[in-house]
Design a protein around this nucleic acid. Structure first.
Lengths: 155, 155
DNA sequence: CGAAAATAGTTAACATGCTAAGGATTAGCG
DNA sequence: CGCTAATCCTTAGCATGTTAACTATTTTCG
């Protein structure tokens, strides 16, 4: 077992790659806390933050395919299958096979799913306001820009 | 059903709170992509990124309690129980009840868990390098600082 | 035209990550 | 000293989110 001081030197040297100081952990924790804050607000509607992501895609363009939504959100198809299952059981969306290409399942909003467009975005805005309470406008824009760059680097 | 143009106006107005443009989604996606990149590198070792988080805590201070690790990582106790279960089954750590307070379970590194300190941080550093490839040093520091501020706002 | 490749979606198994609840133990208070 | 509150950890159930494999369908290519 190496001397404690050798360990301490090693840890000091690699601190930028170690939790809870590293970028990966900070991003993960930020994501978790925003998720929790949003989940609290969605819970009265019986929804989860991922439901919101799918609804956002469909409010912008109803009748997207499962793979279309997956592409927009950069998620795997298997993930979408499970989420759409649960949204269907909550009568937010319904599935319909595309008649011109029977491989494709299209996801359509129900009236309830459509109505939520008036209700949910303000809740999302509240979370963003809370998260960025003491950040200047330029800092908020910088944060979004830097996240976009990290995403581009990893895609 | 409101006119399409009314919907489009509404969506334009709330765009900053809608996926895939909103802060929450960007942070989530960034976290997922960093997780995937790290997972690819850890897979040959049979580890997951969360194992790494726990190992980081124990490399810095061996013998932490389950709740101590949970506090450091801002996770719930139930989450730690499951992760430590799996790390134990991989012989990375072992559990020992604290003799002076039998409520407490302390988590100790095995020799294998200790040895990984030489191996894993460089892999984490690779992910960070890839993620921040075209970001200047000041921009990297800004990103970390802004994430810290968001975390503070949400805690 | 037919076979192979590609696409779409689902299923199964596993790893988080959450809430709620319960058992065991210790701390605090009257 | 005894009871209550608090703490610690675990368990159970549910929601992602992954990989791998499968079925069904369409596209591509020789």
């Amino acid at each position: 077992m190496p001397e404690p001081s050798a360990n301490a030197d090693f840890l000091a040297q690699w601190r930028f790659a170690l939790a809870p100081y590293n970028l990966g952990y900070k991003v993960k924790l930020t994501s978790q806390l925003m998720y929790r804050a949003f989940q609290e607000r969605l819970e009265p509607h019986g929804l989860t933050p991922f439901h919101y992501l799918v609804l956002c895609c469909l409010w912008e363009e109803d009748g997207l395919s499962t793979s279309g939504i997956a592409d927009k959100l950069k998620q795997l198809g298997a993930t979408l299958t499970g989420v759409v299952d649960r949204m269907e059981s909550r009568h937010l969306v319904y599935r319909e096979r595309d008649p011109s290409d029977r491989r494709i399942v299209r996801i359509w909003l129900t009236e309830e799913g459509r109505q939520l467009m008036q209700v949910l975005p303000p809740l999302g805005a509240e979370v963003i306001e809370q998260a960025t309470a003491n950040l200047s406008k330029p800092d908020q824009e910088t944060l979004l820009r830097l996240l976009d760059q990290v995403v581009q680097n990893l895609l």
